[in-house]
Design a protein around this nucleic acid. Sequence first.
DNA 1: AATTTGTGCAACCAAATAGTTGCGCGTATA
DNA 2: TATACGCGCAACTATTTGGTTGCACAAATT
Lengths: 106, 106
Amino acid sequence: MRRDVFQAIADPTRRAIIALIALQAMTPNAIAEHFDTTRQAVSKHLQILTECDLLRPQQQGREIYYHLEVEKLKEVDQWLAQYRSIWETRFSQLDDVLSTLKQNTK
Amino acid sequence: MRRDVFQAIADPTRRAIIALIALQAMTPNAIAEHFDTTRQAVSKHLQILTECDLLRPQQQGREIYYHLEVEKLKEVDQWLAQYRSIWETRFSQLDDVLSTLKQNTK
DNA sequence: AATTTGTGCAACCAAATAGTTGCGCGTATA
DNA sequence: TATACGCGCAACTATTTGGTTGCACAAATT
């Protein structure tokens, strides 16, 4: 089963969970209260997020607090980096060239 | 049908297509040659990427060149930004701890 | 004009996904 | 000790996904 960060953040509910937990580690029940869905549905998302190391479970008595592993998001950042350089530089230089080319071929 | 950037970049094949097109606009056939899959499969990915404005098709005779709209990736960048600040601040605090740990284990 | 080439699109299929319900196992509380 | 609570796990379902095959259409080539 494919289980990487990109897959994990593809789901809007999971991004919402990440946003919640970023502020404060929470238990499955506490998280579920923020959405109109069942605890089990949330639990599945937590499982997926945990499997790709975006979340870290911390047992505390009978409760399990899920912490966000922000570091893991660096993987997405690194992937973006290669394109960030493009959108930062390309802009001014190529824009004119492209538009003139477009006009000539018409 | 959900069609956003996060969903689009979730698939590894699509990320590979993005990487290809970032270098140079390409036609579906040309792209398909880079993977061991059919043109139609690639075509579907191109459609998804186009639907969420990550790609821009440019008809040229009977060929269609797909260009990368790098700007669209800024959406991911903006989403990341809120967490980047977290891992950057957390870092500086931990940096001292980590460096001293490193020295001790050496 | 006939053929080849580059496409998109629709129909179909297997696998993955998001969600539900029901259960069992520990941990707290009475 | 008995009961309530928080949780993970398994089974089941509906939907989405990635892929294939076959077709039609327009542009190039002969």
